[in-house]
Simulated assay, not measured.
Amino acid sequence: MSTRFQRRIPEGEDRERLICGDCGFIAYENPKIVVGAVVGEGGRVLLCRRAIEPRRGFWTLPAGYLEMGETVEEGAAREAWEEARAKLALEGILGVYSIARIGQVQVIFRARLAEPGFAPGPESLEVRLFEWGEIPWDEIAFPSVRWALAAWREGRAAVAGNPPEDARGMAGL
């Protein structure tokens, strides 16, 4: 019995898919969902220095992949705990970004600390609150972190979409 998947266009569709050569099963490849938060506290923002690749040693928001069975809110809270040992009070969606070049949709919340304290989790080397002028911009891990920080700083209502200069999230690091 062969379990070889082949890339071809299924009947009635307009793009290539992975199709099982034996049974015809179509394995759809869909974007991954990333959830996270810009955590503001007393005018400062919480950032995590990554202990893992990609971009180890660079600063990011507490964020990561949504797990099966989670809501986006539960995922954002879990990621903040895993990366920053922080318990959050989510205050609504800050932005939804599309990173087409790597197949991600990012749902970023506006949040504050629900309880005092934070510390590096296993995926972070360091966790720190930064005043706006102290943010290490040359060491920010991903373009979407910049977008979310700018939306937070400007106090915008939820942003649905990328900035015009990178509408499809195709710019590299």
Rank of each mutant, 00 (worst) to 15 (best):
W147V: 06
F142A: 05
V35G: 12
G40F: 05
G42D: 15
E131S: 15
M1W: 04
V96E: 03
M68N: 06
E73N: 12
E82C: 01
T60G: 00
A111M: 02
A141M: 13
E165Y: 14
C48H: 04
G21K: 06
I93W: 00
P62C: 09
V35H: 04
R17Q: 11
W137G: 04
R50H: 06
T71R: 08
F142V: 02
A111L: 13
A77N: 06
W147K: 10
A167T: 10
G24P: 13
A76L: 11
A151Q: 04
F130M: 06
I135T: 09
M1N: 08
R4V: 10
K87H: 08
E16Q: 10
E123L: 15
L61P: 08
V107E: 04
A86F: 06
Q104R: 09
W137Y: 13
E154M: 15
A63C: 14
R153W: 08
R128H: 12
I33T: 14
A157V: 01
R49C: 14
E73T: 15
F130D: 03
R110Q: 05
C20M: 06
S98Y: 03
G69C: 01
P164G: 09
E83Y: 05
G36Q: 02
W59M: 11
M1T: 07
A148W: 05
Q6T: 14
I33N: 00
L46G: 14
R110M: 03
G57H: 02
R101P: 07
W81I: 11
V107D: 00
V45S: 12
G36L: 03
V34L: 12
A51K: 03
W81P: 00
P122W: 01
P54Y: 01
G117S: 05
Y28D: 10
E123T: 15
V105E: 01
